[in-house]
Design a protein around this nucleic acid. Structure first.
Length: 270
DNA sequence: CCCCATGTTCGACA
DNA sequence: GTGTCGAACATGGG
């Protein structure tokens, strides 16, 4: 699930633990999510600290603890954050549980494409500060987008939108949603997107991020049925704009869905 | 048993 | 340097 807005939703599941002490940490040693930072290190460093801050940036989340400890989480394909009772009994996929007197903060990721990382220092980790500008911030500009499209001139725009170095938080369904709003075929190579279409793409990137956050981040609910979202998962879906059959195929190794008559630009592409 | 999956990384190769 | 492809990771669902 987790793309920009779902990450925002999950990140807030740990709000109940802010300002509270970590009395213990339960881990599943050897789980793949600990491939970067050993689970024992996490237990040692976090136990006894206070969860002080939390923030999200695209698909990344960062939790700050007293004593200059930073825990960052990536949800991968199937990661989830939640809270539970103090005596929460961790089961098979609850790989990391932070214990507090008032409750438990839980990270579960059954496929374990997600990752846990620990950094130390009085300020946020350097890599965190160097993350690319959020797509909803004024620092993400038309010039930036244009430059990236030029650099990836031969790449299908669908694939380019998945690059986290330029489009932090965009995932597979958001990329399809953006191109549907901009009325651009996903196979279109980046080098062809200029002028009016560049403007369409820019506003679609920003509006899909904004709207997804507005709709999903508070409740975790799916977007409404007038988005492409709910029609793109299986063969046989219909475009909410035209009512016509959606097409699906693989681009850059990822399932892609589009509306052939609605997204008819460029006309010579497929 | 088979195939598929909202992610990322890495190696091989053009 | 750019781009593509497949594999790998671990698990469950159809």
């Amino acid at each position: 699930m987790p793309e920009l807005a779902e990450v925002e939703y999950y990140w807030r599941r740990w709000d109940s633990g802010l300002g509270r002490k970590i009395t213990g940490v339960s881990v599943h040693p050897g789980a793949r999510i600990f491939r970067r930072t050993d689970s024992e290190v996490i237990v040692q460093r976090l136990t006894g600290t206070v969860l002080a801050t939390s923030q999200a940036h695209g698909k990344q989340m960062l939790f700050g603890f007293s004593g200059g400890i930073w825990l960052s989480l990536h949800l991968g394909m199937t990661g989830e954050l939640s809270s539970g009772p103090r005596n929460f009994q961790d089961r098979k996929h609850h790989h990391l549980v932070l214990r507090q007197s008032a409750g438990s903060l839980i990270f579960a990721d059954y496929r374990q494409f997600g990752e846990v990382r620990l950094d130390e220092g009085s300020d946020t980790p350097v890599w965190w500060r160097e993350l690319p500008p959020l797509l909803t911030s004024p620092d993400f500009t038309r010039e930036m987008l244009a430059a990236y499209l030029t650099r990836r001139a031969k790449t299908p725009v669908k694939s380019a939108l998945l690059h986290q170095e330029r489009f932090p938080g965009i995932g597979n369904w958001m990329a399809d949603e953006i191109l549907w709003r901009a009325r651009i075929r996903p196979q279109c190579v980046c080098g062809r997107i200029k002028g009016r279409k560049l403007s369409d793409l820019l506003s679609a990137v920003i509006s899909v991020c904004r709207d997804a956050l507005a709709v999903i981040a508070d409740t975790g609910e799916d977007p409404p049925s007038d988005w492409l979202f709910s029609h793109r998962w299986a063969d046989g879906g219909h475009c909410p704009k035209t009512g016509k059959r959606l097409l699906r195929s693989t681009i850059g190794g990822r399932m892609t869905c589009w509306s052939p008559t609605w997204q008819r630009w460029p006309r010579d592409v497929l």
